[in-house]
């Protein structure tokens, strides 16, 4: 068993902590850095609840060991809020549309759809469904999540004009 120093940036802040080689990034974020917004669901890459943005791209944080994130940049759901601490237009649209019931999948859904809107500000319904294809939700039937993303896209677009 080996133990390693992990230095990384999370939501703009620098951290350096020790981690056993077998500790996944999601356990490191939650148990070592105390960033519990990211959820652990299946722990084998099926549910998407643990999605984070890693060097600008969404990945599953249960499928990478913390030691492999040494020197990299991570954004978690805590990093999506506005600078003043208020909800982002996307988070607000999830609230408005009841895009959650139990809320377990929500951090992963937000990460996946945040990234979608960054890359594609006016996604079609099928593009939204494709973007959340790797995220399981057992409550909403996905409909309200799709509607929330559509509302967020419209809000962001209207604010830019």
């Amino acid at each position: 068993m080996s133990c390693h120093k992990v230095s990384l940036t999370v939501n703009g802040a620098k951290y350096a902590e020790n981690a056993e080689a077998r500790m996944t990034l999601v356990d490191f974020l939650r148990d070592v850095l105390d960033l519990t917004g990211t959820h652990v669901g299946c722990e084998h890459g099926v549910c998407g609840a643990c999605s984070v943005i890693f060097d600008g791209k969404p990945i599953r944080s249960c499928l990478i060991y913390a030691v492999m994130a040494d020197g990299h940049d991570v954004i978690t759901v805590e990093g999506l809020e506005e600078d003043d601490g208020s909800l982002s237009p996307l988070q607000d649209a999830f609230w408005e549309n009841h895009a959650m019931q139990c809320g377990y999948c929500t951090p992963g859904m937000l990460i996946a759809t945040h990234q979608l809107l960054q890359e594609n500000p006016s996604p079609s319904e099928s593009e939204i469904r494709d973007a959340i294809g790797g995220n399981l939700c057992r409550c909403t039937g996905y409909q309200q999540i799709v509607e929330a993303v559509q509302m967020a896209a419209k809000k962001i677009k209207d604010n830019c004009v």
């Binding site: 998407g48 969404p58 973007a131 294809g133």
Partner: peptide, 9 residues
């Protein structure tokens, strides 16, 4: 192949 999140890794 997989999903966006898995293809990114």
């Amino acid at each position: 192949v997989g999903h966006t999140q898995t293809r990114n890794r």
